[in-house]
Design a protein around this nucleic acid. Sequence first.
DNA 1: GGATTCATCATC
DNA 2: ATGATGAATCCT
Length: 869
Amino acid sequence: MLTDQSSLPIHPCPTHMPGPSRPNDRNSGDRNSGDRNSGDEAGDVRSDLDNLAPWDGPADSDQPAPPLDFQSLGKADADDRSDSSDDVDPLAVPDPEKQKAVASGPSQGELFETAPPPWELAVQDDIATAKVVFSEAPHGPYDYRIPDDMRDVLEAGMRVRVPLGRRRQPTTGWCVETKMGSAASRTLKDIAELVDQDPLCDPPLVRLVLWMSHYYQAPAGQVFDALIPSSVRSGAGTRERTYFTPNTSLIDDAVIEGLPKKQQAVLRFLIAAARPMTSSQLMVEAACTSGPIKSLEKKNLVRLETRREMATAAPMRWNLGDGEVEKSHSLTDDQSNALQRIVAAVDSEKGKTLLLHGVTGSGKTEVYIRAIEHLVKFGRSAIVLVPEISLTPQTRGRFERRFNSVAVLHSQMTPAERHFQWQRIRTGDVQVVVGPRSAVFAPLPHLGMIILDEEHDGSFKQDTTPRYHARKVAHARAMSLGVPLVLGSATPSMESWHACTTGHAELVPMPSRVGNRPMPDVQLVDLRVRDDRTSGSISRPLHRAVEETLRDPGGQVILLLNRRGFATTIQCPSCGHVVACPDCDMPLTHHRDGGKAVCHYCDYTIATPPWCPACRFDGIRYGGLGTQRLEVEVKARFPDARIARMDSDTMKRPGSHQRVLSAFRSGEVDILLGTQMIAKGLDFPNVLLVGVINADGALHFPDFRASERTFQLVTQVAGRTGRGDRGGRVVVQTFTPEHPAIQAASRHDYEQFATEEMVNRRKFNYPPLGSVGRIIIRGAVEDVTEATAESLLGRLEAARNQLGHEVRILGPAPPPISKLRGKYRFHILLQSVEASHLGDTIRRAVETFTIPEKDDVQYVIDIDPMDML
DNA sequence: GGATTCATCATC
DNA sequence: ATGATGAATCCT
């Protein structure tokens, strides 16, 4: 029951991307050089979408990338094709066909059987074809013939069952394109059946899939799997139900008269009802058992049809609440300015990106809500993307109170519930979708805006294939629909900031907090100065600040330490041996609860050895500080304070997150200490002090984003205080107080940070000035893995040189985590000012690169990686 | 010579 | 992935 879009009274819908069909373009995704028949418009789609992502454009150009991209792509590809059959790797074995011809002079027949030349191929005229991709290898795309009875039904975005391979193995694939009345230059297999009655993806989403597949170099089939929740694919929470309708052609009064009494009653009832009914409905309504119904069925007097339906009518609606409507308070000047700019963008129907740079507490959420209220008036809807951890009941409640129909997608949903919400969204019942990363794919029929709150947050990047960034995908989706993308953050990513300075996004500053509350004072404590460091991890100034805060009635403290566990190293003071993970080559972290030594990368766990495993020295030492040890220390220092710890160890059970936070809110806890997760989104007016135990934690990674992350972390956690009337203060302990990121954070000076950081990025053309790609090669045998990496490097260099692209290729080198889960790791980094060059290079290199199964080596391509670990 | 192993190739 | 094909290797 997908609502017909065109019949709805919506705001004039901007046309989608221009996408002229170019029937004879080459399919750049096709890896099969012998294949000459696949006319394919996917190339157009992809390059159009390339142009929609101006952050990929030439670094400092104010213009979006010119639309010549697809022409060059198409041409290069066509050239490539004419070369590639002859111009093969000189090391490769000679073409078996040619060899055969020379060696044994084969008959014409033999030749045609194995490789018919194009002019001899059977041509099928005027047939309907469909392009199908698969989520498992081989990924396609392959062409299939559409049987006549499916012609009018099959659309792109549906799943189909098709025979695949020599065994004609029935396989489920995704239809990405249909072509009516075309000619195919070879005999095609038929599609066996349709899996879906309605497409799971509308055409713009199919285009998004193809763009993602191209940009992130992931098989389109796997992108579909990321787009459509598995619960939707499997039809979770649905049942096959059989419906009965009277078979009117066989029924007349005489027939009915001749039936036994009960059957008569049932049939009369069914005719009177004038709608299909299930057996259970009939049994209740006609007061009978299944016997008479079965008989009618046998006599062919009823027809039955099966339909798949949601098992439960409407799963719980928690948002009914008490009907309380949050009163909308008047907006600050900043807020109404921001709202105006967003509304203008909505009304322009141009697909603009706006960056709300609002300090913590500037009231961005209210702006989002008002902007969505504006959209909803025109029958349009919005997606609000939030980082995983900020999807708290508070956030939910806020939206649920202000809109009639909100779908909140959270991780604890059951498959059935998820499926139900997805269907609700697709039918156009939903005004607002609030959710994490994957909510960017929500199938809203009249999407009018996408909002990314806390857009800098790392959880927007997926770390499994397809390794997409929700910000980038949201951008592509919004631009393709001509709707605004609103990014919000107190500490914008360098990518978004740079987009503003180049005119690809509009900066909307929101410099003042609601109620004009001042930003908290930040005090830096230099940990190198011995005097400040009494024993332990809490400096004298921080200790004093905690004391003072606790003396204040109701005063609460947040302490941030970005390491869980008790001690980060377990080392023998006698021989120096460090207890390490056998699979990852990383030191184990000692956890005091249960005396376990845990690898934080793979969860390998052993009992912490009581003596040195190497020299049996009895007096092993715990070094490095984790949240567990901090908790012990804080308890010892402030015995009267009530303390709660929040890290992924204490938050394992569902709801524990919630429990701790509400205890903290109600004042049952004085000191809340924990990792990252306490740095974001929390809004508690009585937090008068935030202490950062070690601000350098994130700083010393070999990663160009280290500074950015440090600045963000310190700024975000500092924003947890000063939210009430009593102001707030922040104490930051660091070994490098002079570091620009820490300095800027202490002054709440984003612009200074951004300006300085941009200088660093420019030096090496790091993002956002250029693009970075990373290929991780992992394998069980170190030498083999490295050799594979080396040979891949060779392919990459050759591809770059062939294409004549300027791409820097670094490595292979062992990454900081050189061994993970028993596999040795190497990585290759690629850098280019032009994202498409980088992508082309990798695509070209990988096209023909296969690793013998024997080697047991795999590789992963990560475009725009967020870390280098 | 015939079997076996391994690599390569194609799958619409 | 998975099966077919062809060459290289092995074995009585």
